[in-house]
Design a protein around this nucleic acid. Sequence first.
RNA 1: GCCGAAGUGGUGGAAUUGGUAGACACGCUAGACUUAGGAUCUAGUGCCGUGAGGUGUGAAGGUUCAAGUCCUUUCUUCGGUACCA
Length: 863
Amino acid sequence: MEEKYIPRDIEDKWQKRWEDQGVFKVDADSRMEKYYLLEMFPYPSGNIHMGHVRNYSIGDVVARYKKMRGFNVLHPMGWDAFGMPAENAAIDNKTHPAAWTYANIDTMRKQLKRLGFSYDWSREIATCTPEYYRWEQWLFIKMFEKGMAYRKESFVNWCEPCQTVLANEQVEDDCCWRCGKQVRQKKLWQWFFRITDYAEDLLVHCDKLPGWPEKVTTMQKNWIGKSVGSEACFAMENSDTVIHVFTTRPDTIFGATFMCLAPEHPLVEELSRGTEQEGAVKSFVDKIAMQDRSSKALENYEKEGVFLGVYCINPLTGRRMPVFTANFALMEYGTGAVMSVPAHDQRDFDFAKKYKLDIILVVSPKEGTLDPVTMDQAYTEPGIMVHSGEFDGMDSRDAILKITEHLEAKGLGKRTVSFRLRDWGISRQRYWGTPIPMIHCPTCGVVPVPEEDLPIVLPEDADLLDSGGSPLGHLDEFKRATCPQCGRADARRDTDTMDTFVESSWYYMRYCCPDYDKGMVDPEAVRYWMPVDQYIGGVEHAILHLLYSRYFTRVMKDQGLVDFNEPFERLLTQGMVNKATITCPEHGYIFPTDVVDGGNGSSCRHCGSTVEIGRVIKMSKSKKNVVDPNELLGKYGADTTRLFCLFAAPPEKGLDWSDEGVDGSFRFLSRVWRMIKANEAMIRNSTAYDGSLDSLDGKNRELFAKTHFTIKKVTGDIEDNFHFNTAISAIMELVNVMHTLEFDSIDEIRDAVYHLAVESLVLLLSPFVPHFAEEIWAMMGHDKSLLNENWPVHNEDALVEDEMLIVIQVNGKLRGKFTIEADADEATVKARALDDDLVKKFIGDKAVRKVIVVKNKLVNIVI
RNA sequence: GCCGAAGUGGUGGAAUUGGUAGACACGCUAGACUUAGGAUCUAGUGCCGUGAGGUGUGAAGGUUCAAGUCCUUUCUUCGGUACCA
């Protein structure tokens, strides 16, 4: 063992040893209980960032801990390798996306290895390899055959700079989530996955995921957005045409005074044709279509619409209702038509006020009255039915069902359910993705590629600079195809690629059998390893990735590939890594290295202005508050870096970066190192104490008890909720106690107890700082890796205290304390408390009204 | 607007079923050892007060012998979502 703690030497040595011995390689073994630990795989953007370091450090603790508990631990890693940044980089640097991606993978793999994570690298997968995506193409065809994948022409979010379609989820505040530019609407033929078929099932199972944070299941439930309501039919005044509406408030149907259709609604054009409003409607619809979402957002709640020139009839009142097309009616939700009840819906109210439409009150508050003329907002609460014929006087909540039944009986409506969740659009007009294995034939239409022709390999020579549409569309070689059905030679291959969320929806299954070539997954391997016991990743994937994965698992189950519904047993969403920002009035965000410390505060190196320390926010390059893992590794090594990430905050909370804090973690390890180095010979020449607590006293007794307490505490913190911060602080406490021992005399018992403490310390530290622990373990004379050791078990008897500290309170305030033998009876404790000098002083001449004694804890004297 | 989470020292964060608030760190102060230290070790460190003591977990009430913890009201911050009929 070296005199000084030099992480680099130790870490290189152990990483090499682990790799040479293949200690992380696992195989399915039915004799062993499996544990599948998974962390979200990274996009190979070029370098590992601190978010990855944190995520994977958390995972590695669990993996190593479970291994020491005797589980057969599957802990894989791979690459979410398709995606737009590769194309953007390719255009910027004139490299090929594949070359860029694989180079990044090499760099990042090295970084992960440098951090000493316990991955089974033999299972590594990259989603951009044909061996991987061929099975995705295969499943796509299966889904197509079942109608689970289908094509429709629809409005899509179109990002002009990226030349691509975006999923709703990829649009943030009406801007592209990647480039941040405004998104506009465009109509294209797109492939969709019918995830809405599973809306109900996905929703119901949200309540059957006890290992998931409630926050996440709630977000998913809201995203699925089930609402129960009714569909009602409104006939047109002078034609057979019927407008179907969805409403959650059938109790207000008597108050419906007008109708609103989404601008894209097919009836808009049909109904307005030939009326004097035709021109006005057409220009309104065109305007809305041209409008991008952000300008809609700018108008923010400004309701607009145009009269179609026709009327429909309220099925229950017979009232003539003018039909409008309005910007707030959404084609994608419900039926795209809204029956407007201005008295009881705020949007309808605003619209009615703007266009001077009738307002009829049909639900009256239980107390007081409302007048439609003087109302200044809609009344949306339940109440008593009025102006509603036979339903008058009824509680409006009861009327919801009664009116629906009434409509059903008359054939004018039915109970129905509407979901906010839409089908998943997966077509992307991009190059770097999985080709969609379909052929378009002028005769046969859309035909799947025959299975034996899979994979459809992504060609290497696409021209990415030719923006506009799919790059694959410009490759005649690729595009040209023979129809598998009729043999026509002028068929055309689909030139779109799939959304990269498709790859990440099933990669965790492929880890079970990365080289399997007879199918998408090896049924046996999946049966053994799946489902994932613990999944760890960022909360930013709470909705999309996790919902899609749950959906894909169901699709694969229907395909007979797996026999379970839910892929992830337990989920941990770790918080973000934050750091303080620094701003200069002249230069905006600046790097810490651009700050010069002067006499009167800190100033900008470039302009000399006084800089301001800004808020602590998520690390990002643009805010210049990032920490480079490479620098940390160079300065402190992997163990310190990992230790700080785990110590500074519990995993589910945000981690505020502190350079001083990292220093502290390094100091802790150095301190332990020095302590053990100082006692090296003694540790080697002693054996761990294996007696009981009873035969110990003084410091030895204290250390023995502390050792067992620490084992219990650390084990509990890992098992219960992964609160590594408190586990580590418990270990620090143990070390603090170890420091109080004196070695100036010869004492075999002391050495044995100390040996036990060191041994436990090293075992407990090993999941957090594995290289460090291995080095000390080896010094102690062990020749096996710590990974093969058993996790220590505490002895409950060692925790039994014979003396308890009792707190004395007077009227709830702390006034004194004393120690007494454990389990002393109440009368003794009480007498002792009342006898305390300080307590006597506080009681004075007042009468003691009551004395509460809590066994082994406290005495409260009430005066 | 709606949904969710969280407010504790100068800082990150601890506090079992209500029972010593501030564990463990960072920072800071003083001292020791040093040619030196941004190394190490020792002591101290919520706030007010010389002191006895008082006071203190976003704010205001309440329950209780006892409240960071339970209840009511309220404020703030962060995250998600947003014309969903």
